[in-house]
């Protein structure tokens, strides 16, 4: 077996892990599986595309690739704005849809259903705005560098791994060391007690929406950079994200990241062993195994 699959799996796994952290955080605080989470990846990718396109239109200088990467300054600038806008999108969705359903005190599954409707609308809206034709941030080609051990990676791919590492550590520190992270963990364990203890639960919920969407946006942009941008980008990643969030244990950030890498590596191995056309089934197999053997996941609390 070609060892290169390890590099491919790590990169795919890093992106899945990043998205899964968003899923696991929103799931643990909001207490429902958000089927619209995948659309935050797609919207993030397209928002960055539109913004970086506009920047390039204003100043061609900013699209000149920053060596050794394939993109110019327009993309990181656009990424920053896209992260903010995707966060705003999530907050808006909560304000008009989920928040209202929540305050009515209905069953969890109504929220799941609403997220299902929202995901379809959001995805098709992208298809309407940008058509289903794949898009790219840059046309520049990149040459993979040898890393030794038979592994190769492009500078963009290495950057993605680096950014993921930094973001994951930052989120982990935020959650374990900061006041708002402490409050998030408290709300996740017991929202009613959190309110009694003086935590503004609605503020925490808004914060978590924002963080989850921001992480999704970063994952979406990096997927778009390494592969391509399509309206189905996020939808196709949704099952791997759920599989990783559940495998890692709902609420666990390190769990989601490690599980993301496991899913990514398994997918890459499956591509080698049974063929690329079965890649999407890997997440399902993992999901079934987790639900069968250890429904609370690797690092989850017992239900």
């Amino acid at each position: 077996m070609n060892p290169q699959f390890i590099m491919d799996g790590l990169i795919a796994g890093a992106l899945i892990g990043l998205g899964a952290i968003g899923v696991t955080l929103t799931y643990s605080i909001l207490r429902f599986a958000n089927f619209a989470h995948g659309e935050f990846l797609s919207w993030g990718a397209y928002l960055a595309l539109a913004i970086s396109g506009s920047i390039g239109f204003l100043s061609a200088n900013l699209t000149k690739p920053i060596a050794p990467f394939s993109f110019g300054w327009s993309l990181p600038i656009a990424a920053l704005l896209a992260v903010l806008l995707t966060g705003v999108l999530a907050l808006a969705l909560d304000a008009v849809l989920f928040g209202r359903l929540r305050s009515r005190g209905g069953a969890v599954i109504i929220l799941v259903m609403a997220s299902f409707g929202a995901s379809l609308a959001l995805r098709s809206l992208l298809e309407f705005l940008f058509t289903s034709k794949p898009a790219y941030y840059t046309k520049a080609l990149q040459i993979a560098v040898r890393l030794g051990g038979g592994l190769r990676a492009t500078p963009d791919q290495l950057l993605v791994l680096g950014v993921t590492l930094v973001v994951v550590i930052a989120i982990h520190l935020l959650l374990t060391r900061s006041e708002i992270g402490r409050s998030m963990r408290a709300v996740s364990e017991n929202p009613a007690l959190a309110g009694i203890a003086g935590i503004d639960v609605r503020r925490i919920i808004r914060f978590v929406w924002f963080i989850g969407a921001a992480l999704a946006c970063i994952a979406g942009i990096m997927t778009g950079l390494l592969v391509q941008i399509r309206p189905y980008l996020g939808h196709d990643l949704l099952l791997p994200l759920f599989a990783a969030a559940i495998l890692g244990g709902i609420g666990s950030v390190p769990g989601a990241m490690i599980a993301g890498l496991i899913v990514g590596l398994s997918e890459a191995a499956a591509v080698q062993l049974v063929g690329a056309e079965w890649r999407a089934a890997v997440s399902f197999v993992i999901l079934v195994l987790v639900l069968l053997l250890r429904p609370r996941g690797l690092f989850g609390r017992p239900a």
């Binding site: 402490r182 408290a186 364990e189 017991n190 007690l193 959190a194 203890a197």
Partner: peptide, 14 residues
């Protein structure tokens, strides 16, 4: 109390 938080964190929350 918040069982998944430490004693100190419980007090910090309050």
């Amino acid at each position: 109390i918040f069982g998944t938080l430490s004693i100190h964190e419980n007090l910090q929350i309050a």
